[in-house]
């Protein structure tokens, strides 16, 4: 059914500094689906996630992206966030001097303002913070820490999923969320993502390896190679890639 479509990418081409990275990507994601985008290094996986989130350094040269019927490419990164897109960064950015509490308060209230709602009361906000931090097993003292400053790899990724839980997006894009995670952190992150998933939402899991997909089971698997989706299949494709490698697809 057409009204089940959350995201529709057609003929997407994108460049960074005049170098074309995405060379015609088509992708349709429906409500309730989890899509894995796999591929070798340099295939354009991170570019795809950056373009979806609206990173200014990337130029879209052709194609369209519709998100819930809206023209995504006409929207600023913050408007995309308000509309329900969330990107979990491969390399979460450190923001010296800004505490997680202040950061999230600004973000949550910006989302509310985008929906015409009043700012959350201080007590309600702190309650929500505590609840979502516990959800990803972040210690309460992290609330006062500067965003990602001095965090280990696992702490940064848990912080990403914490933010995702706070903002409750419709489409979550997880860019190499498994990189730099030990197995315990991987499980916490994956459980978080699975728990946040509902039939109204969707997720794109971008990864090089099978590992994360043992925990977050995809409905559809795509292989991105040299800026194009070269193969799409069900979750059985993951095992095939693991066995044959990307070169023999």
């Amino acid at each position: 059914m057409a009204n089940d479509i959350l995201l529709k990418i057609e003929g997407l081409r994108a460049s960074v500094e005049d170098k074309e990275i995405l060379k015609g990507v088509d992708l349709v994601i429906r409500k309730g689906e989890i899509h894995a985008v796999m591929g070798p290094n340099g295939a354009g996986k991170s570019t795809l996630s950056a373009v979806l989130a609206g990173k200014p350094q990337f130029t879209v040269t052709a194609g369209t992206i519709e998100f819930l019927g809206q023209d995504l490419l006409a929207m600023s990164p913050e408007e995309r966030a308000w509309a329900g897109i969330f990107l979990s960064f491969q390399y979460p950015v450190e923001i010296p001097g800004v505490t997680i509490t202040n950061f999230m308060k600004t973000a949550v209230n910006a989302h509310r303002a985008g929906k015409g709602q009043d700012p959350l009361k201080a007590g309600d906000f702190l309650k929500l913070m505590r609840e979502k931090m516990a959800f990803v097993q972040m210690k309460p003292e992290f609330a006062k820490r500067e965003v990602n400053v001095g965090f280990s790899g696992g702490e940064k990724k848990r912080n990403e999923i914490f933010q995702m839980a706070m903002l409750d997006p419709t489409l979550a894009i997880l860019d190499e969320t498994d990189s730099g995670l030990d197995v315990d952190a991987l499980r916490i992150v994956a459980n978080g993502v699975n728990a946040l998933h509902t039939p109204d939402k969707a997720a794109i899991v971008i990864t090089h390896y099978q590992r994360l997909l043992d925990y977050i089971v995809p409905d559809v698997v795509h292989v991105l190679k040299d800026g194009k989706i070269v193969k799409t299949a069900g979750k059985e494709l993951v095992a095939e890639i693991e066995e044959k490698g990307y070169d023999n697809l």
Partner: peptide, 9 residues
């Protein structure tokens, strides 16, 4: 960009 991706203008 990190802040904007979280909805901060």
């Amino acid at each position: 960009f990190y802040m904007r991706s979280r909805g901060i203008s």
